[in-house]
């Protein structure tokens, strides 16, 4: 289908940069700053758009793996929400005919359940359980943050250039990246 989303974004960026921004009152610094951020955000959207579905699927699968790992921690009694959210997310992550909104909703539900499990681990008191949960969360976070940082690298805020990947590399490098 033409024009594609990326082409439409590029035409909007050209109009913004060539026509709209030069017309902004030079004394209105807030308008100038916001226009520059809009332009940067559109550039970032172009970089993200090809990977949007892939990203959400990998994100959800990564959380599914974390939930499964938590369920295997000996002696950890998980809230019932974890099992239910895990089951829904697992089913959704294996499908291609889903919207980004559905994927994000499943991810949000699973995140909520996992955080509940982390709280339970902290209150159950046994140090070996807490240590196991900490290790699992930190390991999953390292991988997750690799993807998230790559996804928003266009903001130029990242402070760890030695480990900053391209979006594609971060998705391929994930243990859940191959769908």
């Amino acid at each position: 289908m033409q024009p594609g989303i990326d082409l439409r974004l590029r035409t909007m960026m050209k109009a913004l940069a060539d026509v709209v921004m030069p017309s902004i009152d030079p004394g209105n610094r807030m308008a100038q700053e916001q226009a520059a951020v809009i332009l940067g955000s559109m550039q970032m959207l172009i970089e993200q758009i090809d990977y949007a579905h892939w990203y959400e699927v990998v994100d959800l699968k990564s959380l599914v793996h974390l939930a499964a790992d938590l369920e295997r921690v000996p002696g950890l009694s998980l809230p019932v929400e974890v099992g239910a959210a895990h089951e829904t997310a697992s089913a959704l992550a294996g499908r291609w005919d889903v919207t980004l909104t559905e994927l994000r909703r499943a991810s949000a539900e699973l995140r909520e359940a996992i955080c509940g499990a982390v709280e339970v681990a902290a209150t159950q008191g046994r140090q070996e359980i807490q240590n196991a949960v900490q290790r699992l969360v930190l390991d999953q976070s390292r991988e997750q943050l690799g993807r998230e940082r790559a996804y928003v690298a266009g903001t130029k805020w990242d402070g760890f250039p030695e480990s900053l990947q391209t979006i594609e590399a971060s998705l391929q490098g994930s243990r859940n990246g191959v769908t």
Partner: peptide
């Protein structure tokens, strides 16, 4: 808008 397990930890 979404929970982050690392934040809870």
């Amino acid at each position: 808008l979404e929970q982050v397990p690392l934040m809870t930890l």
